[in-house]
Design a protein around this nucleic acid. Structure first.
Lengths: 115, 115
DNA sequence: TCATAATATATGATTATCCGTATATTAATA
DNA sequence: TATTAATATACGGATAATCATATATTATGA
């Protein structure tokens, strides 16, 4: 991942808020992000795929769910930047509403915590 | 400036390296940035105008030169992010070459340092 | 006032991005 | 095996970004 690719990931509202949610929640499946953001599944899925291709996110399938998280193998220069991303958006209504919807979801999939 | 606008500024090679140069050098005129980046003057000028409109940069005319610098009135959330931008690019050849060309320029304009 | 240097902007073409919709794929379950 | 849920991808259209080129603007100095 180049610095420009890193910043491209964050230069779109949908992607930025997904990253912030993943930063805060650790690991979310596509349907959780879709509900939280109140956007269509293909839209979320396309944005997640882009960030996976750039190397910002990694995915792991658990049964019928695919969980996304911030990559565990990020370049060093990106880590301090990423730590300040959540801070930049957590006050916004869009982010707070997304968090609300996430925590009010019913049927959230169980996470396997041991990996 | 919204977070997305902030990241948009940094999601293009030309803009990212201009920001990094301004971070390192403090204040540069358009012709210095044009020489440093080895790109056309209108191209540099357009990118600088975009970042000025978003509020990331501010300009100040000194005679025939227009100097750009990182805005002195940035939102709080952007400051720690900006501090790590230079770190992300300073190792790259593009950035090192730009610095080389900047310091090897002849006829660099004098800066008024008292403002 | 004329010429020049520095900078900004306009124009049109090309390319990239983003989205809705439809459909394909994968896994679970009846 | 048929169905359903979750996810990914393909397609086409709309919008936005980017660029090279040409030209306008502003300031300086002869």
């Amino acid at each position: 991942m180049t610095p420009v690719q890193f910043f491209k990931c964050l230069s779109d509202d949908t992607r930025l808020h997904c990253v912030a949610l993943l930063q805060k929640e650790g690991k979310l499946c596509v349907c959780e992000l879709t509900s939280a953001m109140a956007l269509s599944q293909p839209k979320i899925s396309r944005h997640l795929a882009l960030m996976r291709q750039y190397g910002l996110l990694q995915d792991s399938r658990e049964g019928q769910w695919v969980f996304y998280q911030i990559s565990t193998a990020l370049p060093d220069w990106s880590k301090p930047l990423l730590e300040n991303v959540l801070n930049a958006v957590e006050q916004s209504d869009v982010f707070k509403n997304a968090q609300q919807r996430l925590h009010h979801m019913d049927n959230r999939p169980e996470k396997v915590l041991c990996d």
